[in-house]
Design a protein around this nucleic acid. Structure first.
Lengths: 224, 224
DNA sequence: CGGTATCCCCCGCGATACTG
DNA sequence: CAGTATCGCGGGGGATACCG
């Protein structure tokens, strides 16, 4: 956190926020990641040492709170951090409006991870739901299990041991278009890029998840 | 502009915005700096090479427009850049709310520079106004001339050759408190930290300038 | 699992000089 | 004045290994 030597609210805030990985970390905290490894899961490529350093300086700046719970530590946005997260979301709104996705950024794991963080555990009709996603057109890992349960959600690259409630087969682009709210589930299936094998109750859930993204475009609204 | 390898609007935007100096550059463009050296003036410590690189990548990202005017180049925020500047301002609002100023960031030159950029050239009762600021309690440079004219505003550390219309004597903290809108001009004089020697019309102008800062707190409102 | 410690490399950044 | 070129250093950041 090198400073700019400027008295200027923008400069003072940028010292904290405009540093590599920091917006991602804030986003993950906003998504409810309360533990070191949870934050890491949603930031592939972020080294543990860097996360450690960032958490330290964010804590020092009063943006996050540390809560020692037994042997482990829980992190949470402070009131100031919650406001910073709002700025972060608005930055994201700008990104959704003006930036286009590069092929190399289309990571199915991350799309599912983000999805898993947006589904509130316990808001589901069953105590545990497992959906297997087959991602076509790419080398392994290309199977991911979305495991939703009352105790917390996960994305696994290995079979979690529970039987799947349903399966989705799609390419990465289709997955992201659905998650981004660009196409509804039904439209994605009609277009032929996506196939869903699941009981009706789960299909209904899946359709709803396509609109959780806060940046979801309107076009998919009204879909079944 | 290293990427994060994530499809996520926040990550995509952060690649552009959350890099050292970029928020400062966006701010200066927002303040109307249209030329390379103007941007540099408002960013002490920013190396020319870094500015050059940033302008290139911001242009590549569609955030700024370059206009070749004869032998020189003019920069301006694009529509996308104007929206990004709004996010930048909101980041600044967060900074104004949650960060406190460190002594080492209190740079009188920069406070006056920011002030000079917020006063619209041509909005003044005279074609040229020169105010000499004496900054107490610090080694030279401690005299700055604020030169406001219809063709553009400047801050000089050397006498510009024009006679001053008025003088202000204050320490850096007092200057910044006034500029930040924490204390009105009259209150600053009463408190004894600031002394103003100027005709009535200029005192009136000076009082108004203390409220130009978009982050000015309310306490000074209602001052003469 | 939840971090810290260590190491090393590379490149971002800052300084300076140079050109049209 | 508006940049580009070059260069060297520091440290941020990425990988890995290591404790509690």
């Amino acid at each position: 956190m090198r400073g700019y030597g400027q008295y200027c609210p923008i400069a003072l805030a940028a010292e904290i926020f405009a540093e590599r990985w920091t917006p991602i970390i804030i986003r993950n905290l906003y998504l409810g990641c309360g533990h070191f490894n949870e934050i890491l899961d949603g930031a592939p490529g972020l080294p543990r040492s860097v996360l450690s350093q960032r958490l330290r300086s964010l804590h020092h700046a009063g943006v996050i709170e540390r809560h020692q719970a037994g042997r482990s530590t829980a992190y949470a946005l402070s009131p100031s951090g919650a406001e910073l997260a709002q700025v972060c979301l608005e930055l994201g709104a700008w990104g959704a409006r003006w930036r286009s996705v590069r092929p190399e950024d289309q990571d199915p794991y991350l799309a599912l991870w983000m999805l898993s963080r947006m589904i509130v555990p316990g808001s589901l009709p069953r105590p545990r739901i497992v959906v297997l996603f087959h991602i076509t057109g790419r080398p392994a890992p290309n199977r991911f299990w979305l495991v939703l349960s009352t105790t917390g959600n996960e994305v696994c690259a290995q079979a979690p041991g529970f039987t799947e409630d349903g399966q989705v087969t799609t390419d990465t682009a289709g997955l992201i278009r659905w998650y981004a709210g660009e196409t509804g589930l039904a439209a994605a299936q009609r277009a032929g890029g996506m196939s869903v094998t699941a009981p009706a109750w789960l299909v209904r859930q899946l359709a709803g998840w396509g609109r959780l993204n806060p940046y979801a475009v309107d076009s998919a609204v009204g879909e079944p």
